[in-house]
Design a binder for these strands. Structure first.
Length: 534
RNA sequence: GCUCCGAUAGUGUAGCACGGCCAAUCAUGCAGGACUCUCACUCCUGCGACUGGGGUUCGAAUCCCCAUCGGAGCACCA
């Protein structure tokens, strides 16, 4: 019908005819269909056989042919980047890669008080962006550019679009809720300029005055009625280059509005919590005759594995020793994921395939782990690590050496393990045994349990055929001269014994068989490993 | 209270701007099986969704209205 619009008026007549034909066709066999299709339209057969490739990844951006983009990621560095931050980093930088242009990191660090920036975090953001493959073309720090914001503020006051308001917060809210102008709204530009200068020079105390942008005080959406643009904060900024230079600080809506224009932003992609913010900023753009960048939003993201946590709450928990630091494996910070051996490529893929939807989503780390496992499995060497180790004594054989492969399918050589008359096995494996049970020590030999306490076994040959025939359990083990290993995981700590050769894998991700992937974090004395995932 | 968004399998996601190629994609998850000297990997099979109700239309996941549910904003936070 789409192809033959002239039939549309006759749709009522056409559809019974089609129905009849369909009934006829349904009586035939698939083989008959094949024959008829070959006669009618052979090209369709190929089309049927090729699977539809759905659009993967990010949707096209709204722009003109050949246009380059300028996009930004704008964090407040009041804590370390987290998995949540990566959405902004990856989506924005990916578009810049796709269309060409500029990717900017802009630190919106204009609150020295409530969400006070953390000095180390500036570098963390830049580092983590680079690690994720999102190299910034430019780094902008808002607290370096306060005079720029002051200039625009003055301009808006002169134009009569901004006023200094001395209302108490609660009083202003009453006026606003009643759609009424507060007493200061109609002051002259001259008066306002005078007040503004006094704000800047520090004559007013904190909370006593605020610069507001005039919008429409009767707007039906209360969120859009006259909003604050600057406030007085006398707490010095943590950056030494800024310190106590300023008494008056811009609020996000103002600072962001000015910077997005100054930096030539073409597109903005950010959380939908900032949707109203955009409408407020629209007034500033209108007054200054600017055009607002094109915007897209994403919804709230929650990870099943991580509850709600605030940066400030987390900071306290770390200070209290509840977590070992910002890279504690239980945390969703990028530093932690990095330390655990999550690869940036996996995070990128995860974020890109998630796309940019306005729906609030709640997702599981499993999907990220699955991506990461695809990268890890071919490159991770295999080792034995026995957690909660118990000794088992073996009789009936001589000390020997075994050489299991480092990888089950890739040819990467072997490791070498010497075995005397005792090995370690996991307590949870030992608990399933009883006198007379037969087990296979993987890559070693077969045993029959002769005593449970103490745990003893006798050598039963090393025929793998009899393992299969008798369906023996195959368990892993560790030699008596193994190395102590401590694994830190989101679910707690595991300690035990591993092969000595693990110590050569510093900073690599290995797989502890029947346990999971781990990144070897330290090898001095004992091995410390961070659990990656199953 | 006012305002603004959104809703497709367990979880994400494609399809929706322009209604018919949708008996709805892909991934992950789960279940079963094959392979395997790991509980990993790989392979095969299966499970599973258009929030509900009206309307428009020959035809609705797609357009319109209502309801329900979820989220956000109404800060001198970002």
């Amino acid at each position: 019908m789409g192809e033959c619009p002239h039939l549309r008026p006759k749709a009522k007549d056409v559809s019974p005819l089609i129905q009849e034909i369909l009934i006829e066709v349904a009586k035939e066999t698939p083989e008959q269909w094949q024959v008829r299709l070959e006669a009618l339209a052979p090209e369709l057969i190929e089309e049927l056989n090729t699977k539809k490739e759905p659009d993967k990844g990010l949707k096209a951006l709204d722009l003109e042919e050949g246009q380059k983009v300028v996009m930004r990621f704008a964090p407040n560095p009041n804590g370390p980047p987290t998995l949540g931050s990566t959405r902004g980093i990856i989506v924005n930088s990916e578009y810049v890669k796709k269309y060409g242009g500029k990717f900017i990191i802009r630190f919106d660090d204009t609150d020295p008080q409530t969400k006070r920036p953390m000095l180390e975090a500036y570098d963390w953001y830049v580092d983590d962006c680079k690690w994720l493959g999102a190299n910034p073309d430019e780094i902008v720090i808002a607290s370096d550019r306060i005079p720029v914001y002051y200039d625009y503020a003055r301009k808006l006051i002169e134009m009569g679009h901004a006023y200094v308001c001395f209302c108490d917060g609660a009083d202003f809210k009453k006026f606003k809720d009643a759609k009424q102008a507060c007493p200061h709204r109609d002051a002259s530009s001259e008066d306002n300029l005078g007040h503004w200068d006094k704000m800047l020079s520090g004559e007013y105390e904190e909370k006593s005055a605020v610069l507001r942008i005039k919008t429409d005080i009767t707007h039906k959406d209360p969120a859009l009625r006259d909003f604050g643009a600057f406030r007085i904060v006398k707490t010095p900024h943590p950056r030494p280059e800024v310190g106590d230079k300023y008494n008056v600080w811009p609020l996000l809506d103002f600072e962001g509005a000015i910077e997005d224009h100054e930096l030539g932003m073409t597109h903005i992609i950010r959380g939908k919590d900032l949707m109203d913010s955009e409408k407020r900023q629209g007034y500033i753009y209108k007054y200054l005759g600017w055009e607002y960048p094109k915007t897209t939003h994403w919804g709230r993201v929650k990870m099943h594995e991580f509850g709600k946590f605030s940066t400030s709450g987390l900071r306290k928990a770390i200070e209290d020793g509840e977590y070992s630091g910002w890279d504690d494996p239980r945390l969703p910070t990028l530093r932690a994921l990095r330390r655990r051996g999550i690869f940036p490529e996996a995070i990128r893929k995860f974020m890109i395939e998630m796309g940019v939807g306005e729906t609030d989503i709640s997702l599981s780390m499993d999907t990220l782990y699955a991506e990461n496992r695809k990268i890890l499995d071919p490159i991770a060497n295999r080792y034995f690590f026995v957690w909660n180790p118990v000794e088992i004594e073996i009789t009936g054989t001589e000390p020997c050496t075994t050489t299991p492969a480092l990888h089950p399918t890739k040819d990467r050589g072997c490791r070498e393990i010497e075995v005397d008359n005792k090995v370690y096995i996991c307590k949870e494996d030992a608990e399933k045994l009883e006198e007379g049970s037969k087990i296979r020590l993987k890559d070693l030999y077969n045993l029959e349990i002769t005593s449970m306490e103490p745990l003893q076994a006798k050598y039963l040959g090393n025929s793998i055929e009899s393992v299969k025939k008798e369906k023996m359990r195959i368990i892993h083990w560790a030699p008596m001269d193994g190395i102590s290993v401590k694994v830190l995981s989101p679910d707690g700590e595991f300690t035990g014994i591993g092969e000595r050769q693990i110590a050569t894998e510093l900073d690599k991700v290995v797989q502890f068989e029947r346990f999971g992937f781990c990144r070897i974090d330290a090898v001095a004395g004992e091995v410390v490993a961070y659990y990656t995932h199953k």
